[in-house]
Amino acid sequence: MTPLLSVRDIRKTYGSHVGCTDVAFDLYPGEVMGIVGESGSGKTTLLNCLAGQLTPDQGQVVFGTREAGPRDTLQMSEPERRMLRRTDWAFVHQHARDGLRMNVSAGGNVGERLMAVGARHYGDIRDSAADWLGRVEISEARIDDRPTTFSGGMQQRLQIARNLVTNPRLVFMDEPTGGLDVSVQARLLDLLRGLVRDMGLSAIIVTHDLAVVRLLADRLMVMKDGHVIETGLTDQVLDDPQEPYTQLLVSSVLQV
C-alpha cells in the first residue's frame, strides 16, 4: 500500500520563531490522524503548510494524485494546487464563516465546488446539494436559506457538506468542533465519523480536545514548541503516554 500523503522534513519559521520543524509522517488511505498540542505548539501552522495555505521554508508534501501518482504539492504550479484544493482536498475551518459564503444560499454553498469543476446542469447541482444537506442532517427545506440564518452547529455541518460534495480523498480540519456546545459537538463528531467510514476518507484533524481525537483519530501526533514529540496509535498515546509532556497533557484532562 502506498501512502496517500507523504510528509518529509517540513519546517516553517516566522523570523527567529520556529512555527514547526522536523515534521515527517506518512498518511495511508482511510487513516485519520489527529494533531494535538496546546496553543502555540505549531499544530495549525503545520496544518496550513500541509494544506497549501502556507508555504513552508523547506520540506515535501507528496500527495498521491488520481491522475499522475505521487506529486510534491509544494512544487506544483498554483493552478494545479488550487484545483487539488477544490477536488481531492477539503479544508474544514474552525469558524464556519471562514469556509462558507455567508451571502449565498445553503444550496449555492454546496453547489459551488461542483460548478467550479464544470457542472452546468442546475437540476443536477440542486439534487446533489439537497442530497448532501440530508447527509449532514440539514432539512432540505432550508436549501434556499442563507447560512446567516443557521445555528453554529448547522453552519459547521453545511461547511462539511460544501467540502465533501466533490468526494475528496483528504480532508484537513482545524478545530472542527471548537466553539460549539458539547451536545452539538457530539452530533458533529458522530456525523464526521460516519462520513469518514462510509467515504473512506483520510483526514488530518488539528485540535486541542483529546476527546475529539479519541473518537475520530486512528493515530496521534503530539506537538510542543513546533516539534513532534510523540506519535502512535490514538488509544496507546492517550492511555500509555511515554513523553513527559504527553503525560502532563493527558493527566490534565478532567475526567467526566
Binding site: 459564503r101 449555492g108 465546488r113 460548478m115 469543476v117 452546468r120
Partner: peptide, 9 residues
C-alpha cells in the same frame, strides 16, 4: 465557478 453560483442563486 463562482459566476455560476450567482446564476444558481
Amino acid at each position: 465557478g463562482l459566476m455560476h453560483v450567482k446564476l444558481y442563486e
